[in-house]
Structure formats: structure tokens, C-alpha cells
Design a protein around this nucleic acid. Structure first.
Length: 427
RNA sequence: GGAGAUAUGGCAGAGUGGUAAUGCAGCGGACUCGAAAUCCGCCGAACCCGUGUUGAACGGGUGCGCAGGUUCAAAUCCUGUUAUCUCCUCCA
């Protein structure tokens, strides 16, 4: 959520910045009209309430003195009715303001490329050696199925398309990867957490998924409305919802592994095979709460933390700065890490690190007291470190051998307990 | 799942229809070489609106877990709801 004051005071600037994210300037005009209306109504009702307070005191005095107050009371009944009708009107105006404001995306940071879509993204740097094969490299799902460590067929039977079983060494590889990632992040100062996998509406609102993207999430429960988390960012960021974080604790770093549940509405037909696009996948997440003046420095450090995982695993990748058109709803600036996938001969997203500035903090009411003791919104950041399923896919493809086995990256061997994946017994 | 209790500033804690006590903490001062203790004073209920400033102030409204309702007037009465605690039930 953006600061209403900004719309009033910096109207043209806000219009210009939000236009880069596809927000029509009429929407801002409408918002400002409603805001003016709101403030007029507030003044109107508050004057009447001030009168009511004064007269109520007079009535109290009269009653104490056993005097008749029925004439004044009758007069106040009319005032009360007027207040009620103005307040009702005010309520509808505020509801309109809320429904517009809560659907507006964050303002993009000055340093990001302007453009309508991913074509405008800018590559920042590349790292790692793209592997050369003296054989035709296989897709990761072929490798996984041939080795008997990924079972998509039975996943589809038991749950549906875009679900799978990891089998034997596959399950062990997944576990090795997220244990490795969590240990790395713990060393970098992140507090390891385990979070709820279902959250309430307010939490989904706080991080910006709701109300605009309700169709992307899995809603469960009839009596009490819960949502399966689409990312651990939601429970981690909402940890401090409606709280004031003591300034000396900032910055706060959290990390957690969790499943992420996504409907993938609108991506029918894309990435229908393999580990790239699933309704349920594991992800190690990083979340930070920082003072505004530190948040962009913290973003750079977070990207470094995600890159470190790829470097330790020896996976080639590049870092891109997302354009205004490709960025997520809550983000002011986002770096994506894309890992090289040999079989597809292209980079695929494996991490996304964003600074949302005060956008989420304003929705979720997460504050701290600055040096003057004033309440300020913190800045929140989130990043994947990394998507575990896609990491499995990248390892299978980049580390595959001609004989169909897969070599385990050095850093993972203590976690995996072997140096290569060999064919599983048939089940 | 059933029954009961509780929810008020940073903390503790009064307030059963007339418009949020008090204590601790905090800030300033007196006393003191200094501190503690003591005494005096101030401040404090996340917020919103207006005038003003740009991080001075003033005025008004709101605010007692949350959302509604009754009333001229609600922390107080009514309804719903959430969280916590205790007991029962169930369970890993």
C-alpha cells in the first residue's frame, strides 16, 4: 500500500511512476477525488460530534441538577441522525478508496529499467562456467525418471498434474539441498524458522497477495478461511505484523524452508513437464526487516547470499534487474537469479530478491521507533535462497554424465552422503 | 469439540451509562561533590482531520481485543467474533 499523502502532494510524480507499471492516470485522479470527498465528510461529521460532546455535557449537568433536558435531547436526536448518515456516506467513500489503493502496485525504484515486460530486463552480471557435453544432454525430468528418483506419473494419479513424488535418492537430494541452504544462511546471520503453512486473510493482505491475486492461491476451510502459503515470505514477513520492532534489533534476518502452494492460474500449457512449474514445491526463503536508509544495501547483500548458494553448487547463472513491467506487485526493486538449464539452452529463474520498501510494512503495520522516538514503517525484503525443486532440476541437467548418472556437487556431498546418483531399484 | 474466566498506556491496575483514576517506568528540576533515596513538576492511550511548520505548536475528532447494535450520551448495556488461561473431551 502506498502512502495517501504522496498522492496528494506528489500527484504528477506518482502518476508518472505508476504509469510504468500500467496504472492509468485516471485511477489516481479518481483516488484523489475520493480522498478530497473523504476529508470534507470528516470535517462535517467532526463538527457535529464536537457539538454533541458539548451538549451531552450540558445534558449530564442538567440531569444532575434534576432539570428537564427533553428539549435538548430531542434536538440532539436530529444531530445524532445526521452524524449517522454522514458516517455512512464516509464509510462508502473509504471503502472505495481502499478498493482502489489496495490494488495499486508499489512504486518502482529509480534505478530499475522502464519497460512493458521481461524484454526490458537488464543483465547485471553472469557467473559460472556453462557446461559442454560430448553427448546430447537430457532434460531433468528424463534424467529423473530414468534414474527412478522422480515419479511424475504417480504424482498425477494421486494428486493431479503438476504434482510429483521424489523417490529414494531424489528425496534425499531435495533434503540435502535445503539443509545445505539453511546452514549457509544461518552462517550469514539469518534466524532459522519453521512457520505455519496456512495463514489467514490478513497475512495474505499484509504481504500484498490479497486482494488482487486471490485466484493464484489455494483457499481452504469453510468455517475459518485459511490460505496455503504461496511462499514462506508470507508467514515470515507477517511475523511482526501489527508490531513495533525495537530499533536496536534491526536489521532482522529470517530464513525458512517451506512448501509453496500455487494454483498457477493462467500458465496452462507452460512448463507442463518437470520441476519448473508445480502446484507444490519447496523453497528456502530469506526475509529481512531493515531501516529505510539501509534497505537497498541489505538487498544487495541478500542477492549475494542467494548467489553464494549457486556458486557453492557450481551452477552457472546470471543476475538480472527486473523492469517495471516484469516486477511483482509489492516490489520496488527486484533482482532475479536465473540458472543455466542445458537441455533448454537457456537461463531459468531460480531466485527472486526484492525490496518492497514500506509497501508491505504499511499494509501489515510493521513499525519501529526512529532516533527521535517517532514511529516509522520498516522496509521489508524477501528473496528465495533458493527454490529447491528448480535447484534439483539444475543439478540434474548441469551435472549429468554420459552413463546417465549425476555427479553431486562437492558442497552437497556431506549432506547427500554420496558423490553421485545411480539408478534406483524399480518400484 | 464442550464449559467457565480474562482482554484498558511501555508495564501494572481502577473504572457497572454522563465522556479513561492511580502506581511503576520515562523526561525535567530541587537536594547532593556525584549518585541513590526523597520531594516538586511534566509527559504518556499506536490513529485521523484542520491551521501551521517541515521533522516546534495549537484546535477538534477518535480511541478501552476486533466488528456491529441500543442510547442525547457506551470502557460500562446487547449481539457476533478473535486471542489467551483453567477444567472436561480428543489426540501425535
Amino acid at each position: 500500500m502506498l502512502d495517501m499523502k504522496l498522492f496528494r502532494t506528489e500527484t504528477e510524480y506518482v502518476k508518472e511512476r505508476l504509469a510504468t507499471r500500467g496504472v492509468a492516470s485516471q485511477t489516481i485522479d479518481e483516488l484523489i477525488t475520493l480522498d478530497t470527498k473523504r476529508r470534507d465528510l470528516i470535517q462535517e461529521t467532526e463538527q457535529l460530534k464536537a457539538k454533541r460532546n458539548v451538549v451531552s455535557e450540558e445534558i449530564a449537568v442538567a440531569k444532575r441538577n434534576k432539570q428537564d433536558a427533553s428539549a435538548v435531547i430531542a434536538e440532539m436526536q436530529a444531530v445524532g441522525a445526521k452524524i449517522k448518515s454522514i458516517d455512512a456516506e464516509l464509510e462508502t467513500v473509504e471503502a472505495s478508496i481502499f478498493s482502489i489503493a489496495s490494488h495499486l502496485p508499489n512504486m518502482p525504484h529509480e534505478s530499475i529499467p522502464v519497460g512493458p515486460d521481461e524484454e526490458a530486463n537488464v543483465e547485471i552480471r553472469t557467473d559460472g562456467q556453462i557446461p559442454e557435453f560430448d553427448f546430447e544432454p537430457k532434460n531433468h525430468w528424463e534424467i529423473g525418471e530414468d534414474l527412478g528418483i522422480l515419479d511424475f506419473e504417480r504424482g498425477a494419479k494421486v494428486a493431479g498434474a503438476r504434482f510429483l513424488y521424489y523417490v529414494g535418492q531424489g528425496a534425499r537430494l531435495e533434503r540435502a539441498i535445503y539443509n545445505f541452504m539453511l546452514d549457509e544462511h544461518r552462517k550469514e546471520g539469518y534466524k532459522e524458522m519453521l512457520t505455519p503453512y496456512m495463514v489467514n486473510y490478513d497475512s495474505m493482505f499484509g504481504t500484498g497477495q490479497y486482494p488482487k491475486f486471490e485466484e493464484d492461491a489455494y483457499r481452504v476451510g469453510v468455517e475459518n478461511d485459511m490460505t496455503l502459503i504461496p511462499t514462506a515470505e508470507v508467514p515470515l514477513t507477517n511475523y511482526y505484523r501489527d508490531e513495533v520492532i525495537p530499533a536496536e534489533k534491526l536489521p532482522v534476518y529470517f530464513t525458512a524452508v517451506s512448501p509453496s502452494f500455487r494454483q498457477e492460474a493462467g500458465s496452462a500449457g507452460r512448463d507442463t513437464r518437470g520441476l519448473i512449474r508445480l502446484h507444490q514445491f519447496n523453497k528456502v526463503e530469506m526475509v529481512k526487516f531493515a531501516k529505510p536508509e539501509d534497505s537497498y544495501n541489505e538487498l544487495e547483500k541478500m542477492v549475494t547470499n542467494a548467489e553464494n548458494i549457486l556458486q557453492r553448487l557450481g551452477l552457472p547463472y546470471h543476475v538480472i534487474n527486473l523492469s517495471t513491467g516484469d516486477m511483482g506487485f509489492s516490489a520496488a526493486k527486484t533482482y532475479d537469479l536465473e540458472v543455466w538449464m542445458p537441455a533448454q539452452n537457456m537461463y531459468r529463474e531460480i531466485s527472486s530478491c526484492s525490496n518492497t520498501e514500506a509497501f508491505q510494512a504499511r499494509r501489515a503495520h510493521i513499525q519501529y521507533r526512529d532516533a527521535d522516538g517517532k514511529l516509522q514503517f520498516v522496509h521489508t525484503l524477501n528473496g528465495s535462497g533458493l527454490a529447491v525443486g528448480r535447484t534439483v532440476a539444475a543439478i540434474l541437467e548441469n551435472c549429468q554424465n554420459a552413463d546417465g548418472t549425476v555427479t553431486i556437487p562437492e558442497a552437497l556431498r556431506p549432506y547427500f552422503g554420496a558423490d553421485k546418483i545411480v539408478k534406483e531399484d524399480e518400484l
